[in-house]
């Protein structure tokens, strides 16, 4: 928590540095999809006004990473405490990974009753973009914002690896930066990540295009239909097991196979960029 706060204090300075750095990096790298066009630059500056609430329950672990992802994408992370009575004017919410309340009873089962969840449930129903990662996904299913449930991995062990995903729905507010069928790589780490749902629910998910990501290559935990992430009918609430927030910064992401050998894979940042782009489009910024 304290790190998030101290980062916020430095935010003005950091943000300017980041802007400069980001611009330079993009121009230097010369990769077509990240070259700063006029439009993008314009968006980037406006993005700073987007407030993304990052919820911390006791036992949440990846809140610092999620806040960093938001910041690197150009938006403003707002730390939210499980006991908070308001969302502090957040425009979007991230429920980060971890072991909220020690996973006691059942993953996400206690967090679902935290005071802040009432507000989040209302906001979700009102169309606010909500991203639940890992434990956040578990909380969203417990809160019935998303269908299905997450059970113990079929091999009964915790697993941590770099995971390939296939994008199955590129039309949600969290995935519009991806192409349909695109293969992306982000970290996966969970003990209870096996997605399960009854037949009817699965059929509905398929029909309504709510399966957003499937595991590609291998199925790491026995999830039904290789499902890695699902959204609600509206598409504003996305839950996924793998961790985009751990692949947002060159050098600290996943192995992208580049000749540098560094961990430069940053597909995760595109989740946040999608949401920002969606929000700016809605706000009329082109």
């Amino acid at each position: 928590m304290s790190e998030v706060y101290s980062l916020l204090e430095d935010e003005e300075k950091t943000l300017n540095e980041l802007r400069q750095q980001n611009r330079l990096d993009r121009i230097k790298s010369g990769e077509s999809d990240v070259v700063m066009t006029r439009t993008r630059e314009y968006q980037f500056i406006h993005a700073a006004s987007i407030r993304v609430g990052v919820v911390v329950f006791p036992g949440t672990l990846d809140d610092v990473d999620a806040a960093r992802a938001v910041r690197l994408a150009g938006a403003r992370p707002i730390p939210l405490w499980h006991n908070d009575a308001s969302l502090s004017n957040s425009d979007a919410i991230i429920l980060a990974g971890g072991f909220s309340y020690g996973d006691y009873l059942r993953t996400g089962a206690i967090a679902r009753f935290a005071p802040i969840m009432e507000k989040i449930i209302d906001a979700a129903k009102g169309g606010m973009p909500i991203l639940g990662i890992c434990n956040g996904f578990q909380i969203l299913t417990e809160a019935h914002l998303l269908p299905g449930a997450l059970a113990r991995n079929d091999h009964q062990k915790f697993i941590c690896k770099e995971q390939m995903l296939e994008v199955n729905n590129e039309n949600t507010c969290w995935t519009n930066d991806f192409e349909f069928n695109e293969k992306i790589k982000i970290p996966l780490k969970n003990g209870e990540g096996r997605y399960i749902a009854d037949k009817r629910t699965l059929q509905e998910l398929n029909e309504k295009n709510q399966i957003v990501f499937r595991y590609y290559g291998d199925n790491p935990n026995g999830s039904v239909g290789n499902i890695a992430g699902v959204c609600n009918e509206k598409g504003n609430v996305l839950g996924l097991m793998p961790h985009p927030e751990h692949a947002v910064e060159p050098g600290f992401g996943v192995d992208d196979g580049s000749v540098s050998g560094f961990r430069n894979g940053t597909d995760g940042i595109r989740f946040i960029r999608s949401m920002i782009a969606d929000m700016l489009t809605q706000a009329g910024v082109k």
């Binding site: 672990l61 990846d62 610092v64 990473d65 960093r68 062990k157 915790f158 697993i159 941590c160 690896k161 970290p187 780490k189 961790h243 927030e245 751990h246 947002v248 910064e249 050098g251 600290f252 560094f262 961990r263």
Partner: peptide
């Protein structure tokens, strides 16, 4: 080692099976 989380905190530059773990 695949049962251990080496990504959390977002500061890991190298981890097993590299020769040494490197964190920022």
């Amino acid at each position: 080692t695949s049962q251990y989380d080496h990504f959390v905190q977002g500061n890991t530059a190298l981890a097993m099976p590299d020769d040494a773990g490197v964190v920022r």
